[in-house]
């Protein structure tokens, strides 16, 4: 589904990604772990089409398409979803309005009829219940005055509504207490299916207790320096990142 080959990217002439190779197949959940500054968020941003990165080499193919050649909105409509590490507050735009515009943009792209207000309301109530979000949050401005946990729930609500084929969760666990973490993880797990893939970017192992990955990759210095099964995450939790970086340097 997703094939990253020798991806190199820099920000303001500073190289951040130094040749990433990653294959994610349909139905798989991959975790990308790594210390701060290893390039995790840059990788997530590059995949979603955030501006400000220079792609200096390599390719990213998503379902046979050149992902890097697509505008962010086209990526989204083709089923790529990024859950933001820092969801953006948008005063004056209600959450409901954003969600409806997003759902209908994706439906239109797929050649499906746009949902009318009634159908949408029904759908959103169902999905909001899934992430245990109170109705009042739907009518407030997007993320404005939301707590950290509420913002992350809102990301997962969007994800549940858009039903993406490839989801990228960028540090979705940061700033969450244990209850919120569980709710968010359940929301993500409901989306697991044989034709969808999920990439979980995280610094800590705890989210992976709830969203159990098929593969774990360690990112350091802009490269994947080790890959393994879910047990690799536990090893990292016990030993920290130092040993693996030393091993890679040796």
């Amino acid at each position: 589904m997703l094939s990253i080959k020798n991806l190199k990217a820099s920000v303001e002439d500073k190289a951040i990604l130094n040749g990433i190779d990653l294959e994610v197949g349909a139905g798989e959940v991959h975790a990308i772990m790594g210390p701060n500054g290893s390039g995790k968020s840059t990788l997530a941003g590059v995949l979603a089409g955030r501006e400000g990165y220079d792609i200096t080499d390599g390719s990213v193919t998503y379902r046979g398409m050149d992902l890097l050649d697509m505008d962010p909105e086209i990526r989204a409509r083709e089923g790529v979803f990024l859950a933001f590490q820092y969801p953006v507050e948008i005063p004056g735009v209600t959450n409901m309005y954003l969600l409806k515009a997003a759902v209908n943009a994706v439906r239109k792209h797929r050649g499906e009829a746009e949902l009318d207000a009634m159908d949408f309301l029904k759908l959103i109530k169902e999905k909001a219940a899934l992430v245990e979000m109170k109705q009042e949050f739907l009518y407030r401005s997007v993320n404005e005055g939301f707590s950290g946990g509420e913002k992350k729930r809102n990301e997962i609500l969007q994800m549940a509504l858009l039903e993406p084929t490839l989801s990228i969760l960028d540090e979705t666990d940061s700033g969450l207490d244990i209850d919120a973490l569980r709710v968010v993880a359940e929301g993500v797990n409901k989306l697991r299916s044989p034709d969808r893939a999920i990439v979980v970017v995280t610094h800590y192992q705890r989210l992976l207790d709830y969203i159990v990955p098929d593969r774990v990759h360690v990112l350091a210095g802009g490269r994947i320096i080790q890959s393994g099964g879910k047990e690799l995450a536990q090893e990292l939790e016990q030993k920290g990142y130092g040993w693996i970086e030393d091993q890679a340097a040796a």
Partner: peptide
Amino acid sequence: LDETALFYLRSRGISADDARSLLTFAF
């Protein structure tokens, strides 16, 4: 217009033009 908000909207499938209008309207 806030560039991060523009990207946020676009990453949800909303076109760049629509995202700009939406943010301006919100203003």
